[in-house]
């Protein structure tokens, strides 16, 4: 097998390595493919579907799809952007996302993606689900209202922290993140220094007692769209 793989994304020649995913190769080449469940330090999950691209005309999740020689990948077409918008809007109405009092606002990847896609309001009706809070841990809050079921915490606890604090519970509309203790996170071996705490893309996992250390207006995505740092690589490369 040749180690180098050549393909195109929106007509741009991209070089990848065998075994890489489209998302990894794109990121290295300075092309941003939107994503929520994917994280560079974690095994791909393929659940949010936001990174879906067309590979030779067929929809595939870029975070799990391996690069292949000669593939024609479409990323930023009007059609795909519309479909991604719909997914992000679905996530907004499915949970309870009150950005105005969320500590994560400005650093939230869901919100940032909505900004990047130019969403002014979701076109779907809000579900206003009943979801729980868990404050049993001395240093960590869990707010299921904001959870988008991306599974980053589940994977981070296993793969990066060497623990097994979370797993998905229930199915379909009743699916949620569960803890390895019936009485809440405080009864697990989760620690505030664990990677799962900061890896949450939304405000579902927060450290206690550190609210608004960085003021709104100076946060990660307040001025620059999400993905800018990846796109900067390409600008630099040229």
């Amino acid at each position: 097998m040749s180690a180098t793989i050549h393909f195109t994304i929106d007509g741009v020649e991209v070089t990848g390595k065998a075994g890489q995913t489209i998302l990894q190769a794109a990121s290295e080449a300075g092309i941003y493919i939107p994503r929520l469940c994917a994280h560079k330090d974690l095994t791909p999950h393929g659940s949010c579907r936001v990174c879906t691209v067309m590979v030779n005309g067929r929809p595939q999740a870029a975070c799990t799809q391996p690069v292949s020689d000669g593939a024609i990948v479409e990323n930023e077409t009007a059609e795909i952007k519309e479909l991604r918008r719909n997914l992000v809007e679905m996530l907004f109405v499915e949970g309870n996302h009150y950005c105005m009092f969320c500590e994560k606002s400005g650093n939230c990847e869901l919100q940032a993606l909505a900004y990047r896609l130019g969403i002014q309001a979701p076109r779907y009706p809000y579900f206003f689900p009943q979801r729980a809070l868990d404050a049993t841990h001395p240093d960590i809050f869990i707010d299921h209202n904001r959870c988008i079921l991306c599974g980053r915490c589940v994977r981070a606890s296993k793969e990066l922290d060497g623990k097994n604090v979370f797993q998905f519970i229930g199915r379909g509309a009743h699916k949620r993140v569960g803890f390895n203790a019936p009485d809440g996170l405080g009864h697990t071996d989760a620690a505030v220094s664990d990677r799962f705490v900061s890896i949450c893309p939304v405000g579902a996992i927060l450290k206690k007692r550190v609210g608004y250390a960085i003021p709104v207006g100076q946060r990660l995505f307040d001025k620059r769209p999400i993905g800018s740092e990846i796109e900067a690589r390409r600008a630099k490369g040229k």
Partner: peptide, 21 residues
């Protein structure tokens, strides 16, 4: 489908409920 979706991915978990509505 709303009853039987596993809930793993966004479009199926949320979209089917919206379709039913």
């Amino acid at each position: 489908f709303c009853e039987e979706s596993c809930g793993y991915c966004t479009p199926c978990r949320v979209g089917n409920r919206l379709l039913k509505q």
